[in-house]
Amino acid sequence: MGQWSAAVMIRLKELISDLQDFYLLSFRGVLNIFKRPFYLKDTIEQMDYAGAGSFFIIFIVSLFVGMALSLQLSAELSRLGMKVYTGKVVGISVIRELGPVVAALVFTGRVGAGMASELGLMVLGHQVDTLRVFGVDPVKKLVTPRIVSSIIMLPALTIIGDAVSLFGGYYIAVFVSNQSGALYWSSIREELIFENVFSGAIKPFVFGYLIACICCYTGLSTKGGATGLRQSTTKAVVMSIIMIIVSDFVLTRILLYVLGFSV
């Protein structure tokens, strides 16, 4: 019993110090944006990898999510005789909810996992220690560019993803469900009001920041060879996904409240 509680205490202490380190990293990562030296080249490289590199997969995923959503809604709404609402519902779901979340999940899989494994390998190969030996702050050199690139590129990808989803929805609504294209677009345009656009636009910034911090943190705390690398990459992806979904809920709740929607 005594042993058991001692083990729990050790675990708990580890957890708390982990959390503390994580907050410190997230905080310093952002603070460094305003401090010299600026690693512009690294940042641009990261942006290229995260943004341009993710374009194709975001395109495909968003297209099919939009089409599937539109298909489901057309089927259900036409049964109720409310097919005209397809555009409206697709628009709201994509802009406020699905677009940001889908883009963030794809981003985690493609970019976040990459960050964690790359940094993990750098730790194991003593490359991070080498940076410190040379007097270079690894947080500034490695983490800050990744945070910056994520909070710029994820919103951009989300906007592209939203647009592609809406087009996918349009295709199904018009060519499969035989609705009027003009009506589809006009009902979407009606939904492009400040409240909807704002709540869809704020999310990707938060998600991007979370993904970059979580993945860099787990990557940099990698220990113990190939198995350790596997664990930290897995942990990075799992934690990011959980945090995206949970923070999406929390953000939605806050935004609905702030923007004066009644639930």
Binding site: L121, M122, G125, H126, Q127, D129, T130, V133
Partner: peptide, 12 residues
């Protein structure tokens, strides 16, 4: 100091 790590630790 100038430290050379066991594995060399070049930035790959």
């Amino acid at each position: 100091f100038s430290l050379v790590f066991q594995e060399g630790a070049l930035f790959d």
